[in-house]
């Protein structure tokens, strides 16, 4: 009978294991991918599995990681923030703009004490996030379009401030955190780890974190439970902008320059990290743990491809394919769960 034939594939597992598998698919798949990639590159290249290279990988994913933290909050509420890289760039440029530059730098900047430059930069990223929040929650613009506009606005701020020039100096604190080391460990890795850890604590153990998941899980139900959904969404957009701002300041210090279009790759990277890690694009499922795995997958992939001597143009295609595979798993996992839910009701 056809009906029973369609069931055989899933019936290979006992029902309990099957449901566990369905629930965990989005968590297992990225982890398996990571292990597979690490094994693959370790075999393919002797220079891959070294402590030095681990340090490299972690440094390479730190800036993306801080940005991805904010995005995780946003995506958990089933919204999206396309302005993360742009806000990061703007904040990095702002902090440099208010720092004394070398005389060779031809920018009409406003030198201020380091702490003041940092406060202004943080405040401007928060302000950009607040504008997004107002656009979304009060005016009612969908996040996709609203943050697309903010992407342009961020790029505009960068363009106006640096006018095609490059600034190099940033406040000392930022320079240390972005480019210095604590013993053998670069500060930027420590900062990224702290931000990830703090975000995990907020999402898992605080009331606000619970609301983030609930709003993403079922916005209507959250509203009917008396949750102030708009406040949660506004907070999440501001958190995202603040994370981007921090990533931008440290990134500028890490790369040693502040200029236009510096972070262009980071939008795709940070979204990829969150989604590859298994956080649901439909909201409510996933978290920082997933984002960490996603970051490592991307980091290992980018770094590993450098070790195995692959056509650098092919690398771009491979990354695209990995992202596609992750999206397929993401959507498939969602469908598996909702089918089980439908069957149960």
């Amino acid at each position: 009978m056809e009906g029973s034939a369609t069931k055989t594939a899933s019936s290979l597992l006992p029902p309990r294991a099957e449901s566990w598998f369905a629930a965990q698919l989005r968590n297992i798949a990225p982890f398996v991918t990571l292990i597979f990639l690490v094994a693959l590159f370790s075999i393919a290249s002797p220079s891959f599995a070294t402590l030095d290279n681990l340090n490299n990988i972690l440094q390479q994913i730190s800036v993306t990681g801080i940005m991805a933290v904010g995005l995780t909050f946003v995506i958990l509420t089933a919204e999206i923030d396309l302005s993360v890289a742009s806000v990061a760039n703007a904040t990095g440029v702002v902090v440099a703009f208010f720092t004394a530059q070398d005389s060779s730098v031809n920018i009409a900047n406003v030198p201020l004490p380091g702490w003041a430059a940092i406060v202004i930069a943080v405040a401007s990223s928060a302000a950009l996030g607040a504008v997004t929040a107002v656009g979304m929650t009060i005016i009612g613009i969908p996040s996709f379009i609203m943050t697309l506009a903010m992407l342009q606005i961020g790029a505009g701020i960068c363009a106006l401030l640096v006018r095609g020039q490059i600034a190099y100096a940033v406040p000392k604190l930022i320079a240390t955190l972005g480019n210095g080391s604590l013993g053998p460990v670069p500060w930027i890795i420590i900062v990224a780890a702290l931000v990830l850890a703090a975000a995990h604590v907020v999402l898992t153990y605080t009331r606000f974190g619970r609301y983030v998941y609930m709003v993403g899980g079922n916005r209507e139900a959250a509203e009917y439970s008396g949750v102030n959904v708009r406040a949660i969404l506004a907070a999440v957009m501001i958190i995202s902008a603040l994370c981007s701002g921090l990533a931008g300041m440290l990134g500028v210090a890490h790369f040693g320059s502040a200029q236009q279009d510096e972070f262009d790759n980071y939008l795709l990277d940070s979204i990829s990290a969150v989604v590859v890690g298994g956080t649901s694009l439909f909201g409510g499922q996933g978290g920082i743990g997933n984002t960490i795995v996603g970051l490592l997958v991307l980091g290992v992939l980018n770094n590993g491809l450098d070790h195995v001597n692959i056509d650098s143009f092919l690398k771009i295609l491979i990354r695209g394919l990995i992202l596609l595979a992750a999206l397929i798993v993401n959507v498939y996992a969602q469908r598996l769960r909702s089918r089980r839910r439908a069957a149960a009701s």
């Binding site: 605080t206 009331r207 619970r210 609301y211 079922n218 959250a222 439970s225 839910r341």
Partner: peptide, 25 residues
């Protein structure tokens, strides 16, 4: 009105969360 994937207790506590906790759940 329900969060289908969330456990029963979270579906019940959602409306009294601010009474139960200020910061930590």
């Amino acid at each position: 009105m329900l969060f289908a994937l969330e456990p029963v207790y979270r579906n019940i506590s959602i409306s009294i969360l601010e009474r139960l906790s200020r910061l930590w759940v």
